[in-house]
Design a protein around this nucleic acid. Sequence first.
DNA 1: TACCGAGTTGACAAAGATTATCGAAACTCT
DNA 2: AGAGTTTCGATAATCTTTGTCAACTCGGTA
Lengths: 161, 161
Amino acid sequence: MISQTAEYALRAIVFLADQRGSPRTTAQIAQATQVPPGYLAKVMQSLSRMRLVHSQRGLNGGFTLTRDPATLPMLEVISAVDPIRHFHECPLRLEAHQTELCTLHRQLENAALMIEQKFTETTVADLLNKADGQKPLCSLAVVSLATTSGASGTGNKSTGG
Amino acid sequence: MISQTAEYALRAIVFLADQRGSPRTTAQIAQATQVPPGYLAKVMQSLSRMRLVHSQRGLNGGFTLTRDPATLPMLEVISAVDPIRHFHECPLRLEAHQTELCTLHRQLENAALMIEQKFTETTVADLLNKADGQKPLCSLAVVSLATTSGASGTGNKSTGG
DNA sequence: TACCGAGTTGACAAAGATTATCGAAACTCT
DNA sequence: AGAGTTTCGATAATCTTTGTCAACTCGGTA
């Protein structure tokens, strides 16, 4: 779906949006969002380069959001670090390519657009809104929407601990 | 969105569905779908292991579809080679984690479910159906649905015509 | 048996994720 | 202003995953 990096970026942005006003250092964000500190620094750089956050060096420095969470779609955060792949043209680019492949790629492109639309509609402010009547725990907030036909192989292997 | 491998698998399945009846060899599929032959062999193995295709060794051997394209959702093909990542539980799994992160991951999970639903509804047979009123060329079938804010990274100008 | 083609395996390159290190800017204190 | 601390910025190195290739084995057909 989306990359690990994009998820990290989202976490950091959401945290900053919640803490808006006072700058937060990389170490603080990393600690709060449980993102590897060294890697988070790199992610924050991408965010800073895209002007989503402002960086302030020195004492009492850190990162602050430059945008209003209400007008900042999730998509921008994701695109800043890991743009969603599109199928603008048939990867086969043959002159005598089959039409069924075109249909395939159109479906794939439509799916990508669907995702983009959803991530465009949802803003960072929406992610902060916790008055939704759900459990405080994340692990309980899953709804069964699609029938996972035999795809029970999540495979999270916790090597070490 | 989806991995390169998953896309390759889709191409191969669609091709086999179109050629159903007579087995097709790896070389034939690779040539028709423009997938690297060596890698396609590995992809076909995954498909075979998941019983989506039947493999026949020896002379006049090759791969054939085991399923009816009309009842074979895209999702199964994708899941066979590269299961869609889910967010069943908060990756932070802290006891004192913030609720805004839960909302974030619920959104991500919903997006994953949305994609899965779409790929469940669309069958391989749908990909074969070419009576849709579109151009024969793949590159022209793109609609602007979401505002791509500054995500113009591709920019290839070599559009041979 | 000879030939053909899938199945398996391992090596390898490319991309993604992660850690560590050093340098540059900004603030504080003297 | 100058020294020292704090924090971002950039880069290199490491590790993992993914994608790619090639050689070889196993099985079926003529």
